[in-house]
Amino acid sequence: MSAVVLIWSLSIAQALLALASVCAVIRIIRGPRAQDRVVGVDALFVNAMLLVLTFGIRSGTSLYFEAALVISLLGFAGTLALAKFLMRGEVIE
């Protein structure tokens, strides 16, 4: 019984997160200016991290946790570099 509950809720949650990623990708493609695309990239990183966490719960290993940590930190560094680039035109001064 609990296996059924867990599998179904995991599948639905993954579908919702995939849909959220699609929304972020649409904003990246459409986004009229560069900053809209950067916000889309940020949201995409967060959704990807949450998706990896649900895969971790599904597989029962904590290896996915490290992947999620790396994705969230890379998302931070990447978005920060993009924002800095928008402000100055170069990342490292």
Binding site: Q14, L16, A20, C23, A43, N47
Partner: peptide, 10 residues
């Protein structure tokens, strides 16, 4: 959690 992430991206 997934629903809130979806609402945010929406």
């Amino acid at each position: 959690g997934a629903a809130f992430a979806l609402i945010g991206s929406f």
